[in-house]
Simulated scan of single mutants.
Amino acid sequence: MAQSSLSGYAPVQQLAEGFPALLRAQWTAGGDAALLPIGIFATLHAVRVAYDVRKGMQLAGRQPLAQELFAMLTFSFGGAILTALLLGRTQMWLENSTTLPLYAGVYLLMARAPGDVVYRALRSLSPVSDVFLAGVDGLIRGYGVTAAGVDLVRKTLKGQPVADSLVAWIVIGTVMGSGGGIIDDVLQFSRPTWSLRAPTMFKRISLDVRVSFCATVGYILTTHAWSFAERAPGFPLSALLDRLLALVPHLSDQEAHLISGLLCSAVLSTAAHFRAAEYSASERAAAALALRKKNDAAASSNDEDNEEEDDDDDDEEDDIYSD
């Protein structure tokens, strides 16, 4: 096996080795014993998705709680749902007894907390809250696309025909990181009325899909996981393509997991900063429109009252002259 291009950087090696354990860390009470049997990063990811769903509902119009919760869970587990369907495996969110209650509980706090305290706190901290949560989501997504996406196919399913399919690696990796948005794009779960439509991704590819695709392809290239000479020896250009692939700096799987997470985090947090500004502008516009409608309604009500008073005065004058 070729030596990693980062093998001489001890801090990178330590970070790469500790990265999976960091993402699986649980809430503790200061010791080694877990305070709650749920992951810290899983909790933050649930907060990120719930926050984004609530923001969308806030502008588009609130929906019944069950409908909002269903949309939230679709965005949370969409990648795992599509991956399991494509590979014929058990749904991953069913294999853990705490995942579904965690995400459902977080959204209930985001949508129905007394005084709307959770949502208002995050909005008051924007754009810092948006950038921080997007950065955490990027770390999780980069790791999920590579370790739970590509590696699921090429390692966990090793020995099966799909494990040797480059197409399967790319599709599963991309879907794992963007499945929730793809499902919503097709079935409109986040809208008041659900409908089946042609995906807009065929016209304009979303950032989530692009990030997931690039992270997937980057992981395959940098780990040198694919060799044409090994997997497609009969292809006339195999030797040439392998020489081109050899020019790509080589990383170990752990290093590539870390680099993928950091790059996804950087891209998504940067995008979140700009989206936070756009959302604040939309909030102000919506508030101004609501105030204008309220003032128009009040003015209209005053006009009607004045007309009724004028009608009463006319009736009194008619009564005077009738005498």
Rank of each mutant, 00 (worst) to 15 (best):
S212P: 05
A288H: 12
A271C: 01
I38P: 03
L73Y: 01
L102M: 03
R191D: 08
I38W: 08
L251S: 01
L6G: 00
G105N: 03
A281F: 07
H273W: 15
V136L: 01
N295M: 12
S282C: 12
P127F: 04
S206T: 13
S282T: 14
L122M: 07
L69E: 12
R243G: 01
A25V: 04
A266K: 05
L85D: 02
R154L: 05
S282A: 15
I182L: 09
G179R: 05
N302T: 09
H224K: 08
M57H: 14
D151P: 01
A276Q: 01
A2W: 13
E309S: 13
A60H: 06
A239L: 00
P192N: 14
S300V: 13
F189E: 09
V53S: 14
T222S: 10
A84F: 02
K55E: 11
N295G: 12
R141T: 12
A104N: 02
R197G: 12
R275V: 04
R210E: 09
R62C: 06
L244R: 04
G39C: 00
A198L: 15
V145M: 01
T83W: 00
L207C: 04
P114Q: 06
Q160C: 00
L187A: 11
I40W: 09
T99E: 02
W27K: 03
Q160P: 02
R120L: 07
P249I: 01
E307H: 04
R191C: 13
L166I: 10
D312A: 14
N96E: 00
L240E: 03
E317W: 04
Y119P: 07
I40A: 04
L122C: 02
L133E: 02
S282V: 11
Y143S: 06
L102T: 08
L240N: 08
M1L: 12
L15C: 02
S280K: 14
W27C: 12
Q14E: 12
R275S: 08
L291C: 08
I170N: 06
G61T: 15
R89I: 07
A111C: 03
L82M: 10
A256H: 05
L268I: 03
H224A: 06
P192G: 13
G56I: 07
D32L: 13
I81N: 00
E304I: 15
L196G: 08
Q58K: 15
E17G: 10
L87D: 01
A168L: 01
L85I: 02
D310M: 11
R62H: 13
A198F: 15
S4E: 04
S252F: 03
R191W: 13
L262D: 02
P161M: 03
R210P: 00
A10D: 14
C214W: 13
A286G: 08
A42F: 09
G56Y: 09
V162E: 02
F235K: 03
V53T: 15
T270M: 01
I172L: 05
T90G: 02
F228E: 00
L23S: 06
T193F: 13
Y219N: 05
P192L: 13
D312Q: 07
S4G: 05
